Computed example of a mutant assay.
Amino acid sequence: MHLADWIRGHCSIENKTRWVRDVTYDEYRSQIRTGTGPQVMAAIRNAAIGVLRLAGVTNISAANRHHGREVNRPLALLGIT
């Protein structure tokens, strides 16, 4: 029973991340196609989604726009400044 719950929860999280990468980052239209570029970009997108979710963000797209407007915002979110 616990394993099935864990698998369902993991799949739910994985599907949410893939959906955000597809819709918000329009990943399927990315022109990065050679070498390890696609995997690296997927990892960067996953990291960004994870950081924003840990910060309590529910709308990733709006958060991307907010943090993209000023160079110090992403750094402050990461606790660098």
Rank of each mutant, 00 (worst) to 15 (best):
A63C: 08
N59T: 06
G35V: 07
V71R: 01
G9F: 06
A42H: 07
G50M: 02
A47R: 09
T81Q: 07
A43D: 08
S61G: 09
W19V: 01
T24M: 06
H10D: 11
P74D: 01
A63K: 10
V40Q: 03
A48E: 10
V20D: 07
G35K: 01
T24G: 00
A63T: 09
N15P: 00
I32D: 10
V71S: 08
T36N: 14
Q31I: 03
A43S: 14
R73T: 01
R8P: 00
L3Y: 09
I13T: 05
N64W: 08
A4H: 09
R69I: 02
G68I: 01
I60N: 05
N46Y: 12
T81E: 08
H2G: 12
T24R: 06
L52W: 09
M1Q: 13
Q39N: 05
I60L: 05
D26I: 03
L3M: 09
W6F: 14
S30N: 12
P74L: 00
P38A: 03
V51I: 15
G68A: 02
E27A: 12
A76Y: 06
N59Q: 08
V40A: 00
V23H: 09
I44K: 12
R33E: 10
D22I: 05
P74Y: 00
R29C: 04
Q31M: 09
A62T: 09
V20P: 06
V57T: 10
W19A: 00
G9N: 08
A55L: 11
R18T: 03
V57I: 10
Q31A: 08
I60F: 06
R33N: 09
S61L: 06
H2A: 11
V51T: 14
R69L: 13
N59S: 12
Y28M: 11
R69E: 11
R53K: 13
V23M: 07
D26V: 04
H2N: 10
R53W: 12
I13Y: 03
Y28D: 14
D26T: 01
A43G: 03
A43W: 07
H10R: 14
